[in-house]
Nucleic acid binder design. Structure first.
Length: 280
DNA sequence: AAACAAACCTGTGCGC
DNA sequence: TGCGCACAGGTTTGTT
């Protein structure tokens, strides 16, 4: 569910409503959510501390803490971060709860039915050992900026199908299945084009499409699908799904050319939707 | 190096 | 209405 635009929306929510608020008390339900370390490490690492910032790298949320440690949250497929009144009933599959100081009597809840998501407290000075995947992340198009020349080097330096390249977090960080398909359609490029076959004008289109698609999705608060799990920190869904031009539109007519039908295939092991007429 | 499959879990939607 | 199966936004690992 959550890709760069959704995670960015959550990050902004954390910045507004979590950063600077003392964590008074911590509850960890399901141990699997804190499997990287342990229940005790997360409770000890978060009790009595305050986040000083909310950052994002790809799909990873990182909050530096005033203790010197950092908290990492990854939503994976079905994770949600909510800040709710203490008095409201906790959703099913609430695995970690941080009671927050302040007049509002609120708590941060990490909810995750499929339990692929994680909450980790780690020492940033030892991140290469405790959070090694952060060091393997490629360029984040929003956080780091991704210039046309950087993209040209990334695609030209390898012979990789474009869909697989966009999904590879060690090359470009943050794009997932929805935005890979939407980006490729906006760039008018097929998922199975080899990266080093792109002409300069096609690299330019891909570069533009990455930025346009991600920025538009962030502006819309992300995509909330019909089976929807994704909501922001206040429980609100996004609305970029109404702008999807190919994702989950198999057998429907292309909204761009109007003369072809969207097809669905498996590429890079993932469901892939594209317009056979617009994308070459 | 790149492609592919399977694994980790639970919920939902579909066909029968 | 009920049951069983396929499939779902991510990432890692192991093969080919």
């Amino acid at each position: 569910m959550p890709e760069l635009p959704e995670v960015e929306t959550v990050r902004r929510g954390l910045e507004q409503r979590f950063v600077g608020r003392l964590i008074e008390h911590v509850e960890v339900g399901r141990e699997r959510t804190v499997r990287r370390t342990s229940r005790l490490a997360v409770i000890d690492g978060l009790t009595g501390v305050t986040a000083t910032a909310a950052q994002r790298r790809g799909k990873y949320l990182i909050c530096p803490l005033d203790s010197g440690d950092s908290m990492m949250i990854h939503l994976r497929m079905s994770g949600r971060v909510l800040i709710d009144p203490v008095s409201s009933p906790r959703p099913l599959h609430t695995h970690v709860v941080l009671h927050l100081a302040g007049p509002e009597a609120e708590e941060l809840r990490f909810v995750d039915p499929r339990t692929f998501g994680e909450v980790v407290v780690y020492d940033p000075d030892n991140a290469s050992v405790e959070m090694p995947e952060l060091g393997r992340l490629g360029i984040d198009p929003i956080t780091d900026g991704l210039s046309r020349s950087q993209l040209a080097a990334l695609v030209g330096g390898r012979s990789r199908q474009l869909k697989a390249l966009l999904l590879d977090q060690s090359i470009i960080a943050g794009i997932g299945n929805i935005y890979a398909d939407e980006t490729l359609h906006a760039a008018r490029l097929r998922h199975d084009r080899l990266s080093n076959s792109l002409r300069p004008v096609e690299v330019t289109r891909l570069h533009q499409a990455i930025h346009d698609t991600l920025n538009a999705a962030i502006a819309a608060g992300g995509s909330t699908l019909k089976d929807t799990q994704y909501v922001d920190i206040g429980g609100q869904g996004g609305w970029f799904q109404v702008s999807h031009r190919v994702y989950d539109r198999e057998d429907q007519s292309c909204l761009t050319c109007g003369r072809a039908v969207i097809r669905r295939v498996i590429a890079a092991g993932r469901s892939t939707c594209f317009c056979p007429r617009c994308q070459k």
